[in-house]
Computed example of a mutant assay.
Amino acid sequence: MNIQDLLPQSVSGKNVLVTGGTTGIGRAIVLLLASQGANVVFFGHEEQHLKDALADILPIAKGKLFGFVADCGTEDGIADVFKQVDEKLEHLDILVNNAAIGFGNATDVSYNDLQHVLNINLLSYLACCGGAITRMEKNGSGHIVNIGSLSAQVREATGSVYVATKAAIRAYSEALRKEVNKHGIKVSLIEPGAVDTDMQQKPTEEKLKKVENEEMLQATDIAAAVLYCLSQPKRCDVIELKIRPHLQLI
């Protein structure tokens, strides 16, 4: 059997928006989808990260690639994101909601700190889904991939605020799938365990050792999962995918 018979939906020529696409998991997703011929619009919040990402991705991109700086934690930032989408892409086929920041517990932090993490980790997902759906409805098809976290279920004591945002993404994805199913729009939730990214505030050598010891994933593992979800036949919805390192016993 040809492997393409099992992955019939190519992303080549598809128009994609990836949030938080300049570092970590987001960058790996942009790189993989662009290498497969997708037209990708992506953004991050720091200019240097954007330059580094473009330097990595442009040489292997087989489709159109557009990167920019935006703050998805603000209403104006979200408006700018979709302004860029409408200017660069004729329509939108795929949204990968990935932008997020780590955060600890609820004590000893200001209200503004809490508002900031909620804006990025939760409200940006909702706002980007809303913007994407209004565009996808016109075509009668689309695919939204929300990157969540196994923290939504593990609910570790060391990050209650982060846990709250990821638990909300889990519930939202389940309800959203039922809401947009009639419009031909798919919704997939991917929940990774520990991944070697900047969000893991450990020394680089320690993280590399954990990857080697099968205690931590690489960002490319999550990118491959996204491509798997997007490549399934139209009849098949991957609604939930959990990925953890072999020796992260959660």
Results as ranks from 00 to 15, higher is better:
195 V>S: 07
118 L>D: 09
25 I>G: 04
16 V>G: 11
24 G>F: 03
81 V>N: 00
233 P>S: 08
117 V>Q: 04
206 E>T: 13
144 I>K: 00
178 K>C: 15
100 A>M: 07
77 G>A: 01
22 T>W: 03
165 T>W: 00
103 F>N: 04
51 K>C: 09
154 V>E: 07
220 T>P: 09
233 P>N: 06
234 K>E: 14
192 P>K: 01
235 R>N: 13
71 D>H: 01
153 Q>I: 12
96 V>A: 02
244 R>N: 13
243 I>E: 00
157 A>M: 13
16 V>E: 07
137 E>I: 14
115 Q>W: 14
94 I>R: 06
98 N>D: 05
182 K>Y: 09
218 Q>L: 14
129 C>A: 14
109 V>M: 07
147 I>W: 00
148 G>H: 03
51 K>A: 10
215 E>L: 14
87 E>L: 15
35 S>H: 05
237 D>A: 10
230 L>I: 03
118 L>M: 13
35 S>A: 15
39 N>Y: 07
3 I>G: 09
140 G>S: 04
146 N>W: 06
133 I>E: 08
53 A>H: 04
145 V>K: 04
74 T>F: 05
66 F>G: 05
122 L>G: 10
184 G>L: 06
100 A>N: 08
151 S>M: 10
1 M>L: 11
188 S>T: 15
33 L>N: 03
26 G>Q: 01
132 A>C: 07
117 V>F: 05
2 N>A: 15
104 G>A: 08
124 S>P: 09
198 D>H: 13
130 G>A: 03
